[in-house]
Simulated scan of single mutants.
Amino acid sequence: MRLLLLSALTLTATACTWVPIEPSGKTVRVLPAGQVPSGCQQRGEVVVTVKSKVGFYNRNPLRVQEELETLARNEAPSAQANAIQAAAAPADGSQRFLAFQCPPR
């Protein structure tokens, strides 16, 4: 019984991850799908990954997508970018984003 309780507690704790936004990531804009605003220059790509499944438990897809976007925003400044745009839909806890340097709004 204790082993079952310990396993359930461990699964619950590991399934609830949270990715904090870093100060540099707070300044990164998320561009909607489609046309990139004029004046933006592509700086490369950012590929990010989080756990989408813990054991047999599939995490909430919206939560996974939110964490992927936060990670991409955190990584964008290292590519000298201040904006990101999803280049593909999330798949198995991974997503590719295009990184851009855009003029200030």
Rank of each mutant, 00 (worst) to 15 (best):
P23S: 09
C16H: 11
M1H: 08
C102M: 01
K51E: 05
C40P: 04
V36R: 03
P61A: 01
S7F: 02
A13E: 09
A13V: 13
Q95S: 01
W18Y: 15
N58L: 05
A87L: 15
Q41R: 04
A87D: 10
A15W: 00
A88H: 11
E67K: 13
G34I: 12
A13S: 12
A72S: 06
A86K: 10
P77H: 02
A72K: 04
I84K: 05
P20G: 02
I84M: 03
V48R: 00
C102Y: 00
M1P: 04
Q85H: 09
M1T: 09
A15Y: 00
A33C: 07
P104L: 06
R43W: 08
L11H: 01
G55I: 09
P104A: 06
G55E: 14
F100G: 11
R2Q: 12
L5T: 11
Q95C: 01
A88E: 15
E45W: 12
V28F: 01
F97D: 03
G93S: 12
Q101C: 14
F100S: 12
G55H: 08
Q101T: 10
F97I: 04
S38Q: 10
N74L: 06
L98V: 09
L3P: 02
G55Y: 10
A79T: 09
R43D: 07
E69F: 00
S52R: 05
R73T: 01
Q65M: 07
Q95R: 07
G55Q: 06
C40W: 00
D92L: 05
K53Q: 07
G93A: 10
L68G: 06
V28S: 02
F97P: 03
V48L: 00
R29T: 08
A15C: 01
P90Q: 12
K26L: 14
K53F: 02
R73M: 01
P77D: 02
T12Q: 07
